[in-house]
Computed example of a mutant assay.
Amino acid sequence: MVDLKNLESSIVNIYNNYYLDVFRFLVYFSGNQNDAEDLTQEVFIRVLKNLPHFKSGSNLKTWIFSIAKHVAVDHYRKKKFISIFKEGFFTQLESKDKRPDEEFEITEMEQFIHEAISKLKPNYRAVVILRGIHEFSIKETSEILRCSESKVKVDYHRALRELKRKLNFDAKEVLTNAK
């Protein structure tokens, strides 16, 4: 996939294929679209700098998301966020099919969920975003987070249990994509 002889073309292809997924991940992680744009730029700068060192046998997507996770955690540590997801991605979505009162309830619930996710430990939050929202496999998640598959399973289970406790209802209702 990565053609080091035609590096410019490879970089354009990588950016076009992964920009939106990385941006969404960073929106979920940071809770702020402006920060996510800056962080996405930082991710692709790091990808560009490290592309010659990329191992051709590795999965490019998990490598890029691993960089994104590190950029997000670095940003989190620098800012020492008090509250993440205050103005999250879901609050900016508009539904044309629902009545205003239904939309308000959904928006309120999404804010409640985002706040609960934001209060999870960073490693739990990362697992929930990758597994529950982005639907990465256990193997892909373990590669991105650079931990064992069993740690991903345990952290995901514990994170869902913690969300259930914080939200006072079944965590699978929260993350309909969770499998």
Rank of each mutant, 00 (worst) to 15 (best):
A171G: 09
F169T: 14
Q33G: 02
F104A: 12
A178M: 07
F44D: 07
H70T: 10
K121H: 09
E42S: 12
L167H: 03
N32M: 05
S58A: 14
P100R: 11
L4K: 13
V27A: 08
V27G: 03
V154E: 13
V47E: 03
E115T: 10
Q33M: 08
E108M: 13
I129T: 00
S30M: 03
L130F: 04
I14Q: 00
S95E: 08
L39E: 06
I144C: 11
T40A: 07
D74L: 00
L60A: 01
L26H: 07
Q92W: 00
Y156H: 09
W63Y: 04
A178N: 06
T141P: 04
E103R: 11
I144E: 04
F104D: 07
D155N: 07
F44K: 10
D38R: 04
F44A: 05
L93T: 12
N168G: 15
S95L: 14
K139E: 15
I144D: 08
H157T: 13
Y156D: 10
I133K: 12
E173Y: 14
K5Q: 13
V127N: 02
F29S: 06
L163T: 10
F112C: 06
Q41K: 02
N123E: 11
L167G: 04
S10P: 12
D97E: 15
S58T: 04
E94N: 12
P100G: 04
I106S: 08
R161C: 06
V43C: 02
L163Y: 01
V73S: 01
N32A: 05
E87F: 11
N123G: 01
F25L: 09
A68F: 03
I45W: 07
K166M: 13
N168V: 05
E8A: 11
K179W: 06
S66R: 07
E94F: 09
K79C: 01
R46S: 10
V71H: 10
N50W: 03
I14Y: 05
V73A: 00
M1I: 11
K80T: 02
S83D: 11
Q92A: 14
F25N: 09
S148P: 10
R125V: 00
L93V: 15
E135N: 15
D35I: 11
F112L: 12
K5R: 13
K80D: 14
E149Y: 03
H53K: 15
A36I: 05
P52G: 06
G57S: 15
E37R: 07
K139C: 08
